[in-house]
Write a protein that binds this DNA or RNA. Structure first.
Lengths: 240, 240
DNA sequence: CGTTAATTTGAGACCATTCAATTTCGGTGG
DNA sequence: CCACCGAAATTGAATGGTCTCAAATTAACG
């Protein structure tokens, strides 16, 4: 059977948590889809819309976001490759938030029915998807804690810890570099701070020798120090 | 077959979103369980623990919560009857947050395996559970927005709007009264504010004639006014 | 009716914001 | 390769929303 390897990373990620049979893998790899490119800042999903297809992020990053009536913006989550952008909207019918592409990104667009059929037919796959959903929720819960109860320095530090942990699943090491093209304004919208204050806190963390953040790439110089500054415990990521 | 009506409210709620066949209903109603009572403030679930059973809230209220190393507490969600307290922990293996009983509450404790069997056997039931999970996540996302980007008055107002909407699914009306025994300290921990400032904002909302909040019960006097103060849009609750 | 928890009030301190200006960076065309 | 441009990052000073710390009052409960 002709199989397309665009979906292989998804199989790889799911396999770490769930035993997938050969049939499971084949069923995933032969899902129908079309590729699409989103430019930086392009909307992948819009609040209020009713999608008929599922969008799987293959390359690049994206973020969930909500806009307030006063023009404010809150970023709710960052999406990394092999994550679905609009699963909730596909199941519940209507999107309750927006998804924007962080950088230029590549996605696979899969018919909702195909994914749902897979979900009904293959227990292991549906368990993997459910676990994805639950971990997603766990991350958002930690964001509530971050934004609600940590001071600005810890907030930024915690967000950076989370990003680094998710980008390098197998334990982040000191000095390691991550490609993550985020602006300070976006970090501000993710932490509930202003861009100005976000800038000052980043400078503080740099001055303390904890991080090195230049446009597009993050390097953690002192993982232990950053973890302490953030009060970070990666239990909620459920990646071990 | 002898069926126990303790689980009937769960069937009723799920039926609003999903068509449940007679067999589906029977399967739910005949789930094995034992009843348990939790006192006010008792822990229903503890971070780090690995539950073997699922806890379904039948009467009273509960809340999800995380503690910080500096002693701070952030409330992440309120649970109302017919909601599961520890589904994520049962699926992912370990609890990543705490659940406490808000008032004296009654729960049904169901063996994990029984619920999982049901989940595998009955497509409609697992769709209902999945939708629950997704709506849960949507609510938490809105909390991130609330805590991250709204000022203190709007934050309190929004939380009250959400509670009222969830307690009276079929559209809240002016002057209606809800039983919700929450303290101002808990409202503070849910909104990321201090108890003192929460008190002042509640007074503001009262002075404006929007609410009437006495210990244990909430009455919304001006639903439209409160909605505007909160910038509230109930789309994310997905209850229509 | 006594005791403890919850709510309320006041005043001062502080963290983060606001507003504005400047500098640096990244990309583009000459 | 340099000059230019807009976006992003940085700096400064003043304002302000929320916090902190205490004390007083009220409500809940046995």
């Amino acid at each position: 059977m002709s199989e397309n390897l665009h979906l292989a990373p998804l199989v790889r990620r799911w396999s770490k948590r769930i035993d997938l049979s050969h049939e499971d893998r084949q069923a995933i790899l032969t899902l129908p889809f079309r590729l699409e490119i989103f430019a930086k800042d392009a909307y992948v999903m819009r609040e209020g819309h009713q999608p008929a297809e599922c969008t799987l992020l293959l390359r690049g990053f994206a973020y969930r976001q909500k806009l307030l009536s006063d023009g404010g913006r809150q970023i709710i989550a960052f999406l990394v490759p092999t994550e679905f952008a609009d699963l909730p909207a596909n199941v519940l019918g209507t999107a309750d938030h927006n998804v924007q592409s962080l950088s230029r990104s590549e996605v696979a667009i899969i018919p909702r029915s195909a994914l749902l059929d897979l979900w009904h037919a293959r227990p292991a796959v549906r368990m993997a998807i459910w676990m994805d959903t639950l971990i997603d929720a766990a991350i958002v819960r930690e964001w509530v804690v971050n934004v609600g109860r940590r001071d600005s320095r810890a907030r930024i530090a915690h967000l950076l810890c989370e990003i680094a942990s998710r980008l390098h699943v197998a334990g982040a090491r000191d000095g390691e570099m991550f490609d993550f093209p985020v602006t300070q304004e976006q970090l501000a919208d993710a932490t509930g701070l202003t861009p100005v204050h976000t800038n000052r806190m980043l400078q503080t963390l740099r001055r303390e020798g904890l991080i090195q953040l230049t446009s597009g790439s993050l390097r953690i110089l002192d993982w232990q120090g950053l973890r302490e500054a953030a009060d970070f415990d990666d239990l909620y990521l459920h990646q071990s």
